[in-house]
């Protein structure tokens, strides 16, 4: 029992410190999340281009990650985090609601793709399409290219 309590406490501290790190450095956190998206998109494109044979489990891993990132990403743009080592456009803070709508759309498209459980390459491509468009449109409007 006592052990469990200690374990719970350690876990709580672990989570708390993760959150603390994240809020201390939202720029680094959101970059990690985007790099994770990029890795998933890399795997997804390898399937789409036939560089590796289609595997529904790999496809699902990519889609699940997009959805998970969609839940977290929008939380890491607190006021003041427009300054620093970031390519995030200042427009994000000027038009926060519009920016967050992109994040929500991204998450919902990813959730729909997960729910569709694509079993074939064709089904996966159909599910992936809107997700890629979200990336591109939001980057066009809200990310600087430097």
């Amino acid at each position: 029992m006592r052990r469990l309590m200690w374990g719970g406490a350690a876990l709580a501290i672990g989570i708390a410190s993760t959150v603390a790190v994240a809020t201390e450095d939202p720029i680094a956190t959101r970059k990690q999340l985007m790099q994770s998206n990029g890795a998933s998109m890399g795997a997804a494109q390898a399937l789409v281009k036939g560089e590796v044979p289609f595997d529904a489990r790999v496809a699902m891993a990519a889609l699940q990650n997009f959805e998970a990132v969609g839940y977290a990403f929008g939380d890491y743009f607190p006021p003041g985090s427009d300054q620093g080592d970031t390519r995030a456009s200042p427009k994000i803070w000027a038009e926060m609601a519009e920016f967050q709508q992109y994040v929500t759309d991204f998450r919902e498209d990813a959730a729909a793709a997960v729910a569709a459980k694509p079993e074939t390459l064709e089904a996966f491509q159909t599910a992936l399409g809107p997700i890629g468009e979200n990336c591109q449109q939001c980057h066009e409007e809200f990310r600087e290219e430097n």
């Binding site: 494109q45 990336c135 591109q136 066009e140």
Partner: peptide, 17 residues
């Protein structure tokens, strides 16, 4: 052609268009 860079980031800002 695809809009994805080698690290699977997309083009942003003015370069997107």
């Amino acid at each position: 052609k695809s809009g994805f860079k080698p690290d699977f980031d997309t083009f942003g800002g003015q370069m997107a268009a």
